[in-house]
Design a protein around this nucleic acid. Structure first.
Lengths: 145, 145
DNA sequence: TATTGTTATACTCTATAACTATA
DNA sequence: TATAGTTATAGAGTATAACAATA
């Protein structure tokens, strides 16, 4: 595999940008739980990975402003999916963690997602799946850079 | 490369979903032209590929509802980026096509995007770029399925 | 009667600015 | 004085419902 030229890279980013915007719009509709927005789902997934975090940390990780995260956390708390506790060392901060209900919901989401996955997989061959599989961590990294 | 298991595929989709949602949020902020929304850019890119299309066709391609496309096309027309003409065979329909200004704007966007690309590339190595390059067409296909 | 596109309206999500409490 | 989080408000983008014109 030769090195990619700047032109190749620009073309890849063009393609990526267009695909990401379209896919994100479709994901909004094909969400597995109608009562949860994509960002709410993403916050729960982050908490499942990290265990717990402060609202500020979550805002930085999800690339939203603090007031937006305040609202998202409040909605999740109202749905019984997260718990808020005082921070042990700093009384300004709070600690957000997922509830048992969130874990159960995520498990159910995963089951439902597999149904959508089966449909989607019908349109891709094994090579295409392999490429997607290989690129997923890179996309994750890109989203975090 | 052995065949991917259903579990591998589910994991890839989980990862993909999370990355796409985060990236789409960042792309909204790092847009190259402040006066154009991501969907407006996507419509122009579609017109650049397809030549011309009716509002209904554009709505289906972009996965938005017809009233939303009406608004988007009106905004693009007000900015002088698209032209609306009567449909030759059906007087209910209209034909949307890009103007010369849109072509110039897309060229300028591409130039600006390369700046952002250069920053982004700093965080990825050649292997990661190669994976992204290989996966971009698959993502495009996925977005269109 | 069905379809294309539009108008009017409301909703969801996010941002900015100003504020409170704590460090 | 700086930082974490909240409240209040506004804006962008999209959807649904009702409507007009044409097939």
């Amino acid at each position: 595999m030769p090195d990619l030229t700047p032109g190749d890279k620009a073309a890849a980013v063009d393609s990526l940008r267009s695909a990401v915007m379209r896919l994100s719009r479709r994901l909004k509709h094909q969400r597995v739980d109608e009562s949860l927005s994509p960002t709410e789902m993403s916050v729960l997934a982050t908490l499942a990975r990290c265990g717990s975090a402060t609202p500020g940390e979550l805002a930085r990780k999800e690339h939203v402003q603090p007031p937006s995260m305040t609202r998202i956390v409040a909605l999740l708390e109202a749905k019984g999916l997260v718990r808020l506790e005082p921070h042990p060392d700093d009384r300004r901060q709070k600690v957000v963690s997922q509830t048992e209900a969130a874990e159960a919901m995520l498990a159910e989401s995963r089951r439902k997602r597999n149904v959508w996955l089966a449909e989607l997989a019908g349109g891709l061959d094994e090579d295409e799946w392999a490429q997607l599989f290989a690129a997923a961590p890179v996309l994750e990294k890109l989203a975090h850079l």
